[in-house]
Design a binder for these strands. Structure first.
Lengths: 185, 185, 185, 185
DNA sequence: CATGAATGAGTGTTCATTCAT
DNA sequence: TATGAATGAACACTCATTCAT
């Protein structure tokens, strides 16, 4: 039932937007009643937060898989794998992603966005350590921060503003090159 | 009067958050009445949109000034100037910037965010043309897109999540190096 | 408008009972809208509290008038006047009085019931002082407490449970005699 | 099971107040389920009514014992015994007594409050008959009514508003004297 | 008989918007 | 033109009651 509610809210946020996500609409789309919402969640924000948490878990899983695969690859190939993962993550559900990033303040779910970013930044840092001898950057924390937000900034824009964006393949190539040059330039 | 209303809304969004920005609160802080709000704006969204437009104009002005100064500089120096401008732009009013980016959907103001980004992207593209012979990138549209979102992604995160961010000087150095290497690598 | 709202609530409490006093019903009977209720009162309890306060003011006024008239009368005549006032007070609006005493906890309006009782007890005490030489009771505070609640207890029951009550004239006689004997016995 | 439910509701009304007495809270405190509540009671009001009935039975038992003991005593001693019983009755559970008298309308349980009062009034009347020759009051029904509500009014206030009340011993003395004088004055 | 998840009508409250003054 | 009282649809949330298991 928790799943049913979260999924209904997910779909409403993605397809109908944040304003449509009233408790009555959620119950309706979940095929249940408002009362049941409150049997499983303390309030509406908690439902939205659960959706956000689940979406972030999905994003995290895509990235984690990529980090796992990238381990052992040569730097450029690994970088490409991670850039591609970021694109894939944004393509999981661009509509939900947009609604969450544009309408759901951190305050609803104080830990989750930070947790996601901190987790990925940590994974990047750890991944970079394997290539330390090849890198010109020396402060790996800063490097992880820059790589994370550089890739996130470009892929987020590329997927969410598709109309005026170069094609994804191109984005992948450019980002890969940029990151590699940044790290080894 | 339009100015008074926009400024009051600006302050509320920055200091009290989106939820506090009711029409009554806006009128109160503007020293006027709700009725007058509707003499100058068709609805509440239009007021928020005006704030957003004005903030975007400010951001645009900071960037335009930087482009103006950067013209004629050597590539690296120009790049540094533009990166610094992006940091300055995010520092104009980080609280308002956060509220607008986290709570005000594009749909409120369909054109303004796009206009800002398109405008800056165009300026970047135009700026790049002056250095065409030095660049290894060939598709200047793609390059402008990548530079814009790379710099925006990193500076946005750096200014809004200050607690876990390397210091701004470092960010400036890294971004400048990254962009230069991307363009000329 | 405050008056209109209080009066409508008054009537609902008296005629339809506490359960009927929803904000929508109040607005309807006041010929206004729920929104207007909240322009004049912070919440529903405050409306009920205002009715209670007004009713208590009416009760207090009836008693005050009686104390004023009773001053200077011989003890028995004065006592009769006060007893009659208590009956009159309960007859002002027995239905409202019942609903308030049976359904509206002190907690809704922490001061008002106490204020009323304390005020009247003080007036009784003050009134007794004029007869001090004729009284056999010595502790006037205790006497005032006993007289207040003795008269209130009997008149409240007499008016609110009319069906099984001796006629009011009889109650008046008996209470007058009781009080006089208590004070001078 | 009926007992368990009634006792749980009793405790909630006394310790947590009327607002806390939801069916779920009752079931929880009774160590059962809401479903079982409805196996033994037709609705929530019936549960509260049962508590009221049981409390009234307890009050009645205290009074009945006193009437039993008072039979045969001289008038003043008997009166003191009954006054004391009224104080004892209010002390059985003042918190429950307050909640029931302030929040539970007669309508919930149309017969019980009347039954209690009628019963006691009848016992008073019957008790008075034994002293008929010593009494100056002639209408024993009226006398019973007056004595009942006089004593109830003062003892109720004395026990429930303890902070601003003379001490109980004093109340007992005063009430005893008043009643005796009323009956024999 | 007992359970407790499910129900949904109903609640108090908010707030963008209107319009008589 | 400016006002702010009035509006009422919409909201999040509660809780007595039901009924499939």
């Amino acid at each position: 039932m928790v799943d049913v509610i979260v999924e209904a809210t997910w779909k409403i946020l993605a397809e109908e937007g944040y304003a449509a996500a009233s408790t009555n609409r959620i119950a309706e789309r979940a095929g249940t009643s408002v009362g049941s919402l409150y049997q499983y969640f303390p309030n509406k924000d908690a439902i939205v937060a659960a959706v956000q948490r689940r979406h972030h878990a999905d994003l995290g899983a895509v990235m984690a898989a990529a980090f796992s695969e990238a381990a052992g690859m040569p730097l450029e190939q690994a970088t490409r794998r991670l850039v591609r993962a970021s694109l894939e993550a944004h393509l999981l559900d661009p509509d939900l992603h947009r609604t969450l990033s544009e309408r759901v303040a951190d305050s609803v779910n104080p830990e989750t966005r930070e947790t996601l970013k901190t987790g990925i930044q940590g994974q990047i840092r750890h991944w970079l350590e394997a290539y330390r001898d090849d890198l010109t950057v020396t402060d790996l924390d800063t490097a992880a921060f820059v790589v994370l937000h550089m890739v996130e900034g470009v892929t987020h824009a590329a997927i969410l503003d598709q109309e005026q964006t170069p094609d994804p393949q191109r984005i992948e190539d450019e980002l890969t090159a940029t990151v590699v040059r940044y790290l080894t330039g």
